[in-house]
Amino acid sequence: MITAITVQPTSNSLHAAYRPIVFQVTAVSLFDTFIQPPVVYCDIYFGGVYYKTVSKTIPLASGEWQFDIQDAAQEYLRKYLAPNAGTEFYQATPAMTKSFCRFRASGINTNGFVVPEGLIPVQGTGSQPPVNGGGTESNSFYIVNATLQHEDNQNLAAHLNTYKNGTWSAQAWPLTHRPQPYPIGLSESDYYPIAYTGISPLKCINVYYRFRGQTTFHSATKCLENPCPIVQIVHSEVTVIDETAQELQFFHQVMPYYVTGVKMEYRPINSEDDFTVIFYDPEQGSTPGEGIEITVPRDIYDVYFTAIGNCSGGRTAHLVIGETL
């Protein structure tokens, strides 16, 4: 079993994919705590989803098992080119990810076979999604598809802090070394790249501009829509109560803080009657063991869910569920 994680990235820290991202753990065999395990596994998770495992069979002289996940991060992360002349905040999802590792030890059983510890994760394939496994979990941190040169501060956040000009949140950094002033022509597309680790969505753009021959800056503000999340039903269940009634139960994902309610609409599948509408607390709908339950006559139902709150363009998830008589 894993006894300690002795070296790991600080929680919520920022790292460059093209520099070492190192972990060290101590471990003992599953079957004899006085000997070292034959293999120690480091399961790498990107965006909360299992990506791949790296394993070691020989520890350092100190007895610690060392892993560097930069190769996996370089494999996983990608560039993203926003559309020409776009007018939204474009999330460059492929260029940055939240990551953690789960470590598992192993032992040699009485038949001489290596037995890995805990629940083994399964890699995703073209047709099957990955399945997360168990193990001792590290801190969570961020990796950016970035490099640092030899002379740069090897702490990515500290390096990027030196390129901040004007007002910045402690949870945002420029992902560019572009100069001040930055030349740009009329009718040209451009984006200012940033890394952001806050939970409050980006909302408004304030432009400060100066006309030729003037010294004062004018300003204007434009607030963009932040879309409500799509309600994703992660579990649904039908319980037949008797010959005429059934109970439908749903769970969905955890909603961001700005979603204050979820609207559920349902009606029998071939009905043209109005939908029955109920509103509920999103926390209730995402709490395992609670969820949302409705008791309805036995039939097949069209069910729609819409997240509502301090967001717009709430999108609807559609589900067909129920049992006929």
Binding site: T167, S169, P181, I184, G185, S187, I194, Y196, R212
Partner: peptide
């Protein structure tokens, strides 16, 4: 316009980022 820069706010209105000072030069 000769130059401009942007300040980005989050949902609560807190400033998040300030862009470079963009200087407009000959166009495309």
């Amino acid at each position: 316009v000769e130059e401009y820069y942007l300040v980005i706010n989050n949902l609560e209105g807190d400033p998040i980022a300030t862009t470079c000072n963009n200087k407009i030069v000959g166009g495309i």
